[in-house]
Amino acid sequence: MSGAEGAAGAGRAGRGWNFFRSVPHARALNLEMVEAGDGIGVLKIPYADALIGNPVTRVIHGGVITSLIDSACGMAIFTALPRMEPIATLDLRIDYMKPAVPGQDLYARSECYKLTRRIAFCRATAYQDDIDDPVATSVAAFMRHSSRAPAGGDNRKGKA
């Protein structure tokens, strides 16, 4: 990524990230941005005991992966849009390949692979140390211009 296009992509990623930081549930999960630009979003959730879904195996809950993937898709879409606008998840499918290893951080990489006038289509992979050995894979569709309510700072609009 270089030149004007790269700078524009970075600006959009920054807007998306400013928005995510303002989201209470993203803070509750300690969501961090790893990388964003050109329709790609990579986010991370550090392992925490509060996220455990199975108290016996200490594996984190599928709901955490759902939040991570949903947010990574939102990030990917924000970097693909010409300007910030409210988006809302229409549907999300997650396939669980293997349990996340307890104690290790979790990442999700999402790609917004198609943007139409009304809909954004994404796929995502959740992984720990190797994206080619994923914890989960996902596909999702989002509605564009989902509400009139602004959601980011500066009266910019964000994700519902």
């Binding site: 303002s22 549930h25 759902t66 994700k159």
Partner: peptide, 20 residues
């Protein structure tokens, strides 16, 4: 409060609904 995904609407986070 911690389950909010959109502070302006406000609305629950999609991941919270999924987790529930």
């Amino acid at each position: 409060e911690e389950n909010i995904g959109n502070t302006m609407l406000p609305a629950l986070h999609g991941g919270v609904i999924g987790g529930l």
